[in-house]
Design a binder for these strands. Structure first.
Lengths: 105, 105
DNA sequence: GCCGGGTATGTCACATCCGACATATACTCT
DNA sequence: AGAGTATATGTCGGATGTGACATACCCGGC
């Protein structure tokens, strides 16, 4: 998600288990990306099920069509915050959000 | 979460069902806050279960103790992204993250 | 062919979030 | 009481995310 991450990784070597910690970080990052992908798919599915256009959802979100497009494209510039907001704004219930999470596996 | 939200709400009146949409937005916001609180509690629980100090977790996160403290205090300046990263860095599995979500109810 | 609604992509100024640091509080040892 | 460790809170410069706009790319009538 962040390109600058590599920079920060290189700087300030870590105390122990370098490789392991690096892997750990990667896995965390991977899990987060998978999570985002799952939620993003749920956003599009929910929006379409409700017959909303990206522009409609954008209004509910108080955002713009282009940002909704970026959300659904899992653009690197969209935060988890915004994705979840979009999912809720699209009409998903809290249970639906949970289900989207469960879809991670 | 954002104070400027009220400002944006006031500007550009919405086309229909003003009150309903306003409520919808509030509910979205409330759901997001509840979600954050649930996850934040999971971060602290997971960290303590693993016997990690905030400083330890900060290292795994490549962040600082003060930010971990803010995460656990559900400070307005922490994003959902960071909370989930912290939860994963604390050692939670993806399933654990799901469970934290389920705890929303 | 060319509209028109829907979607995608790039850019930018501005808002928000971030890590880091300083500092404060609290609790436990000795 | 003083030292050590853990946590909380405030601030700040720089990194990242945001809405808005322009514009391009579809398709399905016309």
């Amino acid at each position: 998600m962040k390109i600058s991450k590599v920079k920060r990784l290189r700087a300030a070597g870590w105390k122990a288990g370098s490789a392991a910690e690096f892997l750990g970080l990667s896995e965390t990052e991977a899990a987060l990306v998978e999570l985002k992908l799952a939620l993003v798919a749920a956003v599009r599915a929910t929006r379409q099920k409700r017959g909303l256009s990206q522009t409609d959802l954008a209004q509910r979100l108080r955002s713009s069509q282009s940002r909704v497009a970026k959300i659904e494209a899992a653009d690197a510039s969209v935060s988890l915050d915004l994705i979840v907001r979009a999912l809720l704004a699209a009409g998903a219930s809290r249970k639906d959000v949970q289900k989207a999470f469960v879809a991670i596996e």
